[in-house]
Nucleic acid binder design. Structure first.
Lengths: 218, 218, 218, 218
DNA sequence: GATGAATGAGTATTCATTCAT
DNA sequence: GATGAATGAATACTCATTCAT
């Protein structure tokens, strides 16, 4: 599941530690200036050691980018997997969306980095990253499918797939279109608006549409 | 509305011609290798003149990126402005969405370039670009607002804003998440699926909602 | 006959000039410190221009080495080709050897460079260099063959080949074993000694051996 | 006679063992890639221990080169000293040459390494190496001198010196001009050709010279 | 005595930009 | 207005050597 990044150092524990230092340093720099404008020396410095040491733990500058992206995805995925995916109620779906959007809000900067720099990954690293995206989208698919199964919403498989992708991207939108949203809404408001729009077209089976407090503009 | 890009040459006509050459050459290169990996020499060559001449029409490499992005936006905007925005029927809205999505399909590569490289624009160029995005989103807002006005759909101003943004991004998604969509759907299918999902939550006024199998173009 | 070394600059005349500057500078440096210990920056400086300019006329550091070796060979070959190869007398052969050895004496430093650094040439450059060596050995073969034809010496083809190589290497020996020879002999003495040893085994047909003043120990 | 190479370790026995490991590993590497392109890490690895340990037995990378060269010389010298130098017949001389040339054939790769890399030795190591070369040349001088003494050949001291050097270099030629010789001749043929050429000019006392087809082992 | 992680000076090469012709 | 040779700061990456464990 992980693309191996070769290190010259043997001590696995140390590799773990040093790579975390590298990632921590690099993320900060990438946020500021982007991958291309960040120097390997700057990365080494930010990580707290010499350029020589940096290269004991990576092979190329691009390895750092991969490490960073991989790490961000892992972070998001890990947190995401704390969501309760098994229930099949609309309310749980909404909670999940809210949870995910809040996460995107917290990890805004990281999401932005990943979003903007991932394209600089070498061809052979991309599949690993897309794989992770897929897994996250899958979680929303499962959620949606459960709701369908329990009869709370009405979507066929294709619609589930597209909706899951929409939700996933709308979460990211909060980060990458911050200039359009964050001056107008709080994350709470954004969540409410998006959730409402998504759920409307979904739950309205039998016209019973009653989506709680949010959006009573019926 | 345009950020001026200084040229040493006076003849405005010539500037126009040369810049178009530059843009044409650069877009191709940026598609292939991205902005950072493209050299000014390559740009000059692709444009059909010498590096010296290139610098008669731009000030820095980044100017080229701006020119390219600006040009792509203009292209999209121009085509988009051919849409009929004034009617207020659901059917017109759907046509507009289809039109826009088709455009995104055609200009896929360009959209990708803009999407991936815009972040390399200098701070002072970004507002100009965002401005253009805003204008495009605005068109969808107008469309939606008209539908609301004519009573075909039911959305408040905030929902209109978010929906317009969603539509805008979903169009781009077709390009920037091609790996997720284009192996599964044709652009037609994608349009149908997304349109349906968007309109559902919108048009369901008076419970007339009947979303049989996909696309109930009601 | 020449391995092309790509330049970014188009003006052929200028390339010629600049490359000569490069060669002149590089030879001096290579003599002093060898190829590996010489920096591209030092080469540029010695050539009289910036590192950037250096790279307008070569592609890699190794190109410089090739240029240098090629140039030395050309120099030697050119001078060598002034020798009169057509006669078929022992005396002419001796003159040719003397001429060649004197050349090796003059170009000592260059020969040394070539000798010691040629092995650092990339695999694809070596054939070009060996080719040139071959051509020089060939000249001695022609000389010897003419002497055989005119009946002055007695050697079969294999012996001609080996003798030509021996002469060639003995000339170089004066440079690369200078520590063994140059404290004991002048170049004149060295020539006399070597010539004598080579010719002895060769010309003594019919016992008529008469090799002038040198070595009357017959 | 040996230039000392300082070690941090005291145990002389161990030093001997480790250095042999170093030499064995390094020779292989130097054969493959030359001294400059071989890293100390690779040497340590090839020797079978860590980089830290390597530096317990040498002071600098160049020490390894010296160790290697010294070792090769020693190997050659040792084998060479098995030759019978004391007789004074042409036949013994020829045997000695044959023996030496065969040795050069066997140790081809080593000879090449020494030949090509010796120039990278530091100024202060060179005398030690040249000293060894001298000793080997001396052996041929002794051989030749004995033959002169016994009246089998006719050479003065200068001629002896030059001839001994010629023989020495011709042996090496088999290795360093392999591209010129080894596709044309077997080592046997090469020996026969060179021996004949060398001895001709030497043994021709009393005109008894009869050099039919090659190898008149008279 | 052995190890291997850390170091950082050093190096080849690139490329945006300038400016004399 | 066009050209392209010249520039040199910048940069990824290497590798001999050290030293704490």
């Amino acid at each position: 599941m992980k693309r191996p990044v070769k290190a010259s150092v043997k001590d696995e524990k140390l590799i773990e530690i040093r790579r975390n230092q590298i990632i921590r340093g690099a993320v900060t720099l990438f946020k500021e200036k982007g991958f291309h404008r960040t120097t390997t020396r700057e990365i080494a410095k930010a990580a707290g050691f010499s350029i020589g040491t940096l290269y004991e733990y990576i092979r190329t500058k691009e390895d750092v980018l991969y490490l960073v992206c991989d790490n961000i995805y892992d972070g998001v995925k890990e947190k995401l997997s704390e969501m309760d995916v098994n229930g099949g109620t609309i309310s749980q779906l909404k909670q999940a969306i809210a949870y995910y959007f809040h996460l995107m809000d917290e990890l805004q900067e990281e999401v932005l980095v990943m979003y903007q720099e991932a394209k600089s990954l070498s061809k052979d690293a991309i599949p690993y990253v897309l794989q992770k995206e897929m897994e996250m989208v899958d979680m929303f698919q499962v959620l949606l499918r459960n709701c369908v199964r329990s009869g709370e919403i009405e979507l066929d498989e294709q619609q589930i797939y597209v909706t899951a992708n929409d939700i996933f991207v709308q979460g990211q939108m909060w980060a990458f279109r911050r200039w359009a949203f964050q001056r107008r809404y709080t994350i709470e408001e954004y969540i409410e608006l998006q959730t409402e729009l998504v759920c409307h077209g979904i739950e309205c089976k039998r016209g019973k549409v009653k989506h709680g407090n949010l959006s009573t503009k019926a």
